[in-house]
Design a protein around this nucleic acid. Structure first.
Lengths: 346, 346
DNA sequence: CTGTTAGCGCATTCAA
DNA sequence: TTGAATGCGCTAACAG
């Protein structure tokens, strides 16, 4: 007889329950899975007693192996900051996914990778989920490479906040309408008299930010010249310093648009330190409108990002895909709305 | 022959690789697991070619079943807000755990539960991890009940930011020294002349907040009377309104201490709206010192919470526990530091 | 250095 | 209504 590496002695299996209830494992399995019509009432009660007494819980390993399903979905985040969950957008996506999956008995496995290579080293090395959602940053070519890499894993793939490369099959792209939101913000500023706009973006590339930039360009049109300023988003003080230097050197634009609320708040502070008033001297807008927007004043005009809904949708679409064998739609676009505030003239 | 529920045709197994490389599965397994001394160079290369050609990845299900290990750790969060990951403390813990686990080839499974009952409905129903960390809110009795519930799962348990009930074995409690941090803050305020202190806490109970309250009590001692104000943390405007009402009705204390930075920022705004100056009229302190502390001014004096380190430590301790069969220590306390700012008189 | 055997927990299939 | 046999993918133990 071979001895096995020693399971914790207190982890009962179907067999243990079956022995205790003096039935076969199959009967226990039927009870567990609620196939009442196949088990007699008395037997069922005896089995339930045994389950209770042993503290038995089905062990997913066996079930997974038999059914060729892991009952788990991965959320993979490619982000330069190892504290990838610090990004408020990402946390909301994760919460949305987790809650939707929990209802369906699925688990959410979270993993962050700094870059493609470390990604390959971890997730890719072994298959432990049924499907995957990916949220990637970086230049478009790097992102596309990551998507292709993940697509080769033979799993359905949801690409969050980015387009799927044409050659990636069995993928679905879910994004919010950043371009329209940004365009509407820019139009609002122009309507309020802005004739020069500074758009401040993070150095590290994000697909959503690229779309916001295009939206802003469309919004200002030929009415107001658009200037781009790149800053180091990870360091709040550095963002402030970059904006301050720009103000000192290039004079003050009519409006500053932050690619997200964090950047816009840095702009508010840089302006305040120079004695410039918002919105009378300069108008400012942000993007996302998450809770911390309330922490600074004047309250930012922003755009509400449905990040939680994005995660929720991703989970549901993946469940449908696993059930039906294919994605219903290759692309889902969630709407956004301009959120009023005090940082734009009335 | 039995037909199986149909694995995706493109998901190769060890056997497929073995057949293609014309070796036994065992040899392939040895290559995969880096047992170079047991496989000849030529064979190894042939096998690696086959793996590449088939796009093979080890399937965790089989490995888990054989080794009686899931290679996954759960982080369970009991929090009334379904957007449990909105809490910045929790996200940092999760990031710390995820990164530490990834290095060791483990996955992090995240699940949030509103209350104990929904917790039992999800995780508890089936075993899919090797160990668990839990971060619970709510009254002490509810929390203890949750810990006992989880302890019955036969898994090692790490209890984050809370003490383990005495009757829970195979558990380890990891927390930060909230009491000392809060005491030091309170002492600082007293040293700067505060003779009345208002401590503003969220309605929903958190063990860390209870410890902070005790620390504040110890810090003010008999020098300054301490008043407690309870607010509805989830709604920033409601927090502001509660503090504003208190200011209108009870006059202004010498200092307001927020149980966290969010609450302290609400206090700053409520004070600002009444024309009260910080720190000359009133001093204000927060707690945690996460990134968004920078979003408001004046900059809060706060306490730095090592939330990321907490998650990192939790992961490492669990790995040690799984290797060694028992926890080294029943309790780990991480230090905190007062972080300077402009909201306390110099 | 390589192969064979056996079995982890579970659910499908077929037999009683 | 219940049971027995089978095999999912993988690896420890042992045999060659």
């Amino acid at each position: 007889m071979h001895t096995v590496t020693g399971r914790p002695p207190s982890m009962p299996s179907l067999k243990d329950v079956a022995e205790r209830a003096k039935v076969s494992v199959m009967t226990v399995s039927n009870v567990i899975n609620g196939r009442h019509e196949r088990v007699g009432e008395e037997t069922r009660i005896r089995i339930l007693d045994a389950i209770e007494a042993l503290g038995y819980r089905p062990q997913r390993r066996g079930r997974s192996l038999r059914l060729q399903r892991e009952f788990a979905i991965a959320l993979t985040i490619i982000h330069p900051d190892r504290r990838f969950l610090d990004d408020p957008y990402i946390t909301q996506v994760a919460a949305g996914m987790s809650n939707a999956l929990a209802q369906l008995g699925y688990a959410l496995v979270i993993n962050g990778a700094q870059e493609l290579s470390s990604l390959e080293a971890t997730i890719v090395r072994s298959a432990s989920v049924d499907a995957m959602a990916v949220f990637a940053s970086g230049p478009a070519s790097t992102r596309a490479k990551a998507y292709r890499s993940l697509a080769r894993l033979h799993h359905p793939l949801i690409i969050l906040q980015d387009a799927a490369p044409r050659d990636v099959a069995d993928a679905c792209s879910i994004l919010q309408d950043d371009a329209t939101g940004a365009r509407d913000l820019a139009r609002l500023l122009v309507a309020k008299g802005a004739r020069s706009v500074l758009f401040v973006v993070p150095r590290h590339a994000w697909p959503a930010i690229e779309r916001r930039r295009k939206g802003v360009e469309a919004g200002v049109g030929r009415t107001a010249p658009l200037e781009l300023l790149v800053c180091d988003e990870a360091d709040f003080e550095a963002v402030k310093a970059t904006i301050a230097r720009r103000l000192d050197e290039g004079g003050c634009p009519d409006a500053i648009m932050g690619a997200n609320d964090q950047i816009a708040i840095a702009a508010l502070q840089a302006l305040g330190a120079r004695g410039l008033r918002v919105p009378s001297d300069v108008m400012v807008t942000g993007f996302n409108a998450f809770a911390f927007r309330n922490f600074s004043s004047p309250l930012l005009v922003s755009v509400s990002s449905p990040a939680y809904a994005l995660g929720d949708t991703a989970a549901r679409e993946l469940m449908l895909r696993l059930d039906q064998g294919r994605f219903n739609r290759p692309r889902i676009l969630l709407p956004v709305d301009v959120v009023p505030g005090e940082s734009v003239r009335a």
